[in-house]
Design a protein around this nucleic acid. Structure first.
Lengths: 239, 239
DNA sequence: CGAGTCCTTGAGGAGGGTCAATATTCGTGG
DNA sequence: CCACGAATATTGACCCTCCTCAAGGACTCG
């Protein structure tokens, strides 16, 4: 496959496992996953799974970021979320026995582990605690999506953009702390991607970012955005 | 409590149980639920649970309809869904250990059974199959919400209203088949409620309904709406 | 260093929100 | 069953937010 190659990482050496769904599995369960999983590394812009196809297993993100989006009837992509290391993707489609409702595409160099359906289901059956964790995860996600739904239905673009920037600050803050020496965090996404998160046109994002820049809420440097006044954005977003 | 009174219905006499989450419980598990649950009947407009409060258990709808909505920062209500008999409410907040993100309010005379938290959790712990069912339900719901999110972000009000009418036709079709002799189904909701489903202003709903009426897609009689041309609405909604 | 991608800016206009005034319907009590 | 007040539906006018189209400029990456 173009842009991907194998980079095997055993689960018990995985740095993100302790934050993940898999934090409480037994040695033997981890060994079993290790035996059956396959790890790969992908360049920016690779599609890991495509809307409408059937899931064959789940993905666990080891490093990098993946945008999860759904394509609307007019071809525009709505970004549902940006997944970061430790997150598990694809289990919902697998469990609800339906095709992926969304596409997953890497936003940067990313390494993931793929666990085949059968092994995942087996773990689910044999370890009730694992099932409980998944259930809790899913229930929490529904709560978050409910908030998003209301926000999309009721808030103005400016409000939603403010909220999105705060969310992105967190998303891009996670491993920025590792790489960067300065404490400020920069968002590195195309304006179009931001528009597809907020649910608006690219030009509208650009114009409002411009205003926020004039109001000293953010700074921009080419594509990069730096959040300067999170509290004020918080207020603008009515959050 | 005003507008409510007890009307106990044992689970194994419950007509909606076979369609519900509880279809595969054992005799003894059902007996246990029966022993601890409390059933009540509520008039139209009663709030069963309120956004921001902590869940004390779950509700199972025996008859009637309940609107589930979230109040936005400007006080407008976004209706997330309309729950119908057989549906179970409140388990997500309970499991994710968080306050209700939404309010549940009866749309008509409704009877529900309330199962206290401890009994529900106990059933969940003791019956893995029950947990699996819940998990599958939650995962399916996330898929549906994803579609809604994209729709809200990308479709026009006219498109969303068309989709909403089709959804409401189903919702109001369920027990209409029991009551009504004619096969047509009537939606009986305030225009404001419809606006709060679609995510728009009441006046906009009225104007577009007017146009749809002129185009012979629907008929209206006072508050009541009758869907005449579902296929055409389907097409309008790009569904 | 060239081509492609992405960003930016402007002009114009449509969709849909808001406000206000009126008509109709609904639910309630007499 | 009828009448009344409150809630809801309707209509019109206005205008603001945001989308679309178009064109030029700036990055970025091979």
């Amino acid at each position: 496959m173009r842009g991907s190659n194998k980079t095997y990482i055993p689960c018990n050496e995985c740095k993100v496992r302790s934050h993940s769904l898999f934090d409480k599995l037994s040695e033997s369960e981890l060994d079993n996953l290790d035996y059956h999983k396959s790890c790969s590394r992908h360049k920016k812009g690779q599609v890991l799974f495509h809307e409408g196809t059937r899931p064959l297993g789940i993905y666990c993100i080891n490093s990098g970021k993946i945008k999860i989006y759904q394509t609307g009837s007019d071809g525009k992509n709505q970004i549902i979320k940006i997944a970061t290391p430790g997150e598990v993707l694809g289990y919902k489609a697998l469990i609800s026995d339906s095709p992926y409702p969304v596409t997953g595409e890497t936003l940067e160099e990313t390494s993931v582990c793929f666990i085949p359906k059968d092994e995942f289901i087996a773990t689910l059956q044999s370890n009730p605690e694992f099932g409980q964790k998944l259930l809790k995860l899913a229930c929490t996600e529904i709560g978050a999506m409910t908030d998003n739904l209301t926000s999309l239905a009721q808030k103005s673009v400016r409000e939603r953009l403010a909220v999105a920037l705060l969310m992105l600050k967190d998303t891009y803050g996670i491993d920025a702390a590792v790489d960067e020496e300065d404490s400020e965090i920069e968002i590195n996404l195309t304006r179009e991607d931001i528009a597809n998160i907020v649910g608006t046109a690219t030009e509208t994002v650009i114009r409002i970012l411009q205003e926020m820049k004039e109001d000293k809420l953010i700074e921009t440097n080419g594509r990069k955005i730096r959040v300067v006044e999170p509290q004020k954005l918080f207020k603008i977003g009515n959050y």
